[in-house]
Amino acid sequence: MTVTHPAATSQPVADDGLPEGLADGLAAASLVLARRLHAGGTLWCASPSWPHHAQHVAVEFVHPVIVGKPALPAVALPTHELTANARANVRPGDVLVVIGAADDPVVRDLVRRAPAWDLVTLWVGAGTPPAAGAADHVLWLPEDEMAAHDGRFILLYHLLWELAHVCLEHGGVLEPEPECDGPVCITCSDEGRLVEVVRSSGSTARVRSGDGLEDVDLSLVGPAGPYDLLVVHAGMAITRLGAP
């Protein structure tokens, strides 16, 4: 089959292939997913509107249709108290795939909190896309909600599974990228890390971050309660995230 690269045209390739950029997006997301699974992470799957899609992703990974492929840890999160279930179960280094519309309030809240839990986020959907940067990997179809029902969402997560397994067979690419190679680095300089409040007392809060639990100073942001999201710099909460 001759494959025309979608970059050759400015029009989305909607009729016969993936829209521009989506194949690259799936490849990048699959590599990150494979790296985290290789390192012992779990794939958490959430879809408040279409719970069967979350379950379908999970069963692909846990019980592969192709004999000989390794079973991998993937779990569909229950839709009841979804965020609380995620908060209780996820571990640093896990991956979260959400399937839902850009305006789904539960999905928005979940992907917003995910960095505080050290999750990489993949967001699958169709129609109007979420804001840039809403998730680490936004895998989006331009069409309407019909894509959720007619097999196109299923295609996207089938591809995610297939590509992740290819990555897992290429051991050389599975080690994580070096995070920092110089004296000045945004990642390591403690600049603007997202944390979630566990509890607070006076001007101090015990918070959850990608590194575990830590105490932060609330002097600049005022009182904070459980599950509030704060941005922390050098042990000091410098701003509070509003509602999504």
Partner: peptide
């Protein structure tokens, strides 16, 4: 991977 994804989508 991207080429494979595109071919499989088609």
């Amino acid at each position: 991977l991207a080429r494979s994804a595109q071919a499989k989508a088609m």
